[in-house]
Simulated assay, not measured.
Amino acid sequence: MTTFLQFHVLTTYPPSNPNRDDQGRPKQATLGGAPRLRLSSQSIKRALRESPAFQAGLAGNLGVRTKRIGEEIEKKLIADGAGAEAARKVALQVAKVFSKLEAPAKGEAEKPKATTLAFVSPDEWRFADELAAKLLAGEPEPKDMKGTVLRRADGAVDIAMFGRMLADDPDFNREAAVQVGHAITTHQALAEEDWYSAVDDLNKAEDTGAGHLGEHAFGSGVYYLYVCVNCDLLVRNLAGDKDLAAKGLEALAQALATATPRGKQNSHAHHPRACYVRAEKGSAQPRDLTGAFFRAVDLKHKDGAERASIDALDQMCAKINDAYDIAYDDFRVMDVMLGQGTLADIVAFAAGAVADA
């Protein structure tokens, strides 16, 4: 049976704007008829990938999402002594393995830049470099160019976790082993508008007007985030490497409690830590606990919004267990306000989830 690892995370954000919409305002959602602030799953996954837990803890096992692999191959070939024309020709050949290329402007030569982002693993990048070197040396193109470079499973932990889609080569798509929900405030929340001005340092004393006027939106609140890991799929995506899968889950647990989207971070210095993390593992069908907040938490609750959110989450978990049977084999909790559990406990528990995968 499949082993699932689930995380329920509550994090309190100060006034901030970590994830903006197309108008520069905090993203929003409606739940239970009440407006909420939202962090998109895409922004959260990028924050996880860029976190120290991933970048330091998984160095050498992370992919790169880019349109520019062909350009990088071209630069490397030239740096190694290849002629510009030969390097461009080879780079164009290899870049087409990952995506169609951008059409050149009228009168310009074709460039090895892809039309879509490709999530490239370290192994695939190495195979692309090796193929480029062989083509530059005069070897013929392999019959299966894509199979020479692309892989269905390897040691790229972030690709194994969050998946990828290659529109032109679905055979090399990777199904995400980690599902990440959109984080929403547990209570009603609206974006606030800030009007600000800036002073010109060289302004004449008699000119009292501002040098710049602007508007800025921000919001704050307690956010609930749900994440579900298919541990068996994670191991398969990593070519059966359970040790690497465990290392990846350690990084994921660490990052879920500490990483944040970085929009407007210099303006707000938001560096929140999760106030509550509940981690569960087992073979039962996964379920999120968003229903705990369909009725918005009362911001005037006598114990505060954080405690009220934790209590609502625990109560919903208990009700679902009563109605459907217990949805996990084991669990761990870190409750900062009560001094219960530690992040180290959660990290160790998460790593152990691959034992039965």
Score class of each variant (00 low, 15 high):
2 T>D: 03
3 T>M: 04
3 T>F: 00
5 L>W: 01
6 Q>Y: 00
11 T>V: 13
14 P>V: 13
16 S>Y: 02
18 P>F: 01
19 N>M: 03
20 R>W: 03
24 G>D: 12
24 G>Q: 10
28 Q>W: 04
30 T>C: 01
31 L>D: 08
31 L>Q: 12
34 A>P: 00
36 R>P: 03
37 L>S: 04
41 S>Y: 08
45 K>S: 06
53 A>N: 07
55 Q>G: 03
60 G>Y: 06
61 N>I: 02
63 G>Q: 11
63 G>K: 10
71 E>D: 11
73 I>G: 12
73 I>C: 12
73 I>V: 14
74 E>N: 10
77 L>G: 11
80 D>G: 13
80 D>V: 10
83 G>Q: 10
84 A>S: 15
84 A>E: 15
87 A>K: 11
89 K>A: 15
91 A>H: 09
95 A>M: 12
99 S>L: 05
104 P>E: 01
105 A>L: 08
107 G>S: 00
109 A>H: 02
110 E>I: 00
113 K>M: 09
124 E>Q: 08
127 F>V: 05
128 A>R: 02
134 K>D: 11
137 A>C: 03
138 G>A: 02
142 P>L: 05
144 D>F: 03
148 T>I: 02
151 R>A: 09
152 R>H: 07
161 M>L: 11
163 G>W: 02
164 R>F: 00
165 M>Y: 05
165 M>L: 13
167 A>I: 08
171 D>I: 01
173 N>S: 00
174 R>Q: 15
175 E>W: 00
176 A>S: 07
176 A>D: 00
177 A>W: 04
181 G>Y: 02
183 A>S: 12
184 I>E: 06
185 T>V: 04
187 H>T: 04
190 L>A: 10
193 E>Q: 14
194 D>Y: 03
195 W>F: 15
197 S>N: 13
200 D>V: 02
213 L>R: 11
214 G>A: 07
224 Y>K: 12
233 L>T: 10
236 R>D: 15
241 D>P: 05
241 D>R: 09
242 K>L: 06
245 A>S: 10
248 G>F: 00
256 L>Y: 04
257 A>V: 04
257 A>K: 03
258 T>K: 08
262 R>K: 11
271 H>Y: 13
272 P>E: 05
273 R>Y: 11
273 R>H: 12
280 E>G: 01
281 K>S: 06
285 Q>T: 12
287 R>F: 10
291 G>W: 06
292 A>S: 09
292 A>K: 08
293 F>G: 08
295 R>M: 05
300 K>M: 12
308 A>S: 10
310 I>R: 03
317 C>K: 10
320 I>Q: 14
324 Y>W: 06
324 Y>Q: 13
325 D>N: 11
325 D>Y: 07
332 R>Q: 15
333 V>G: 04
335 D>P: 11
335 D>L: 06
336 V>N: 08
342 T>W: 06
343 L>H: 12
346 I>L: 15
348 A>Y: 08
350 A>M: 07
352 G>I: 05
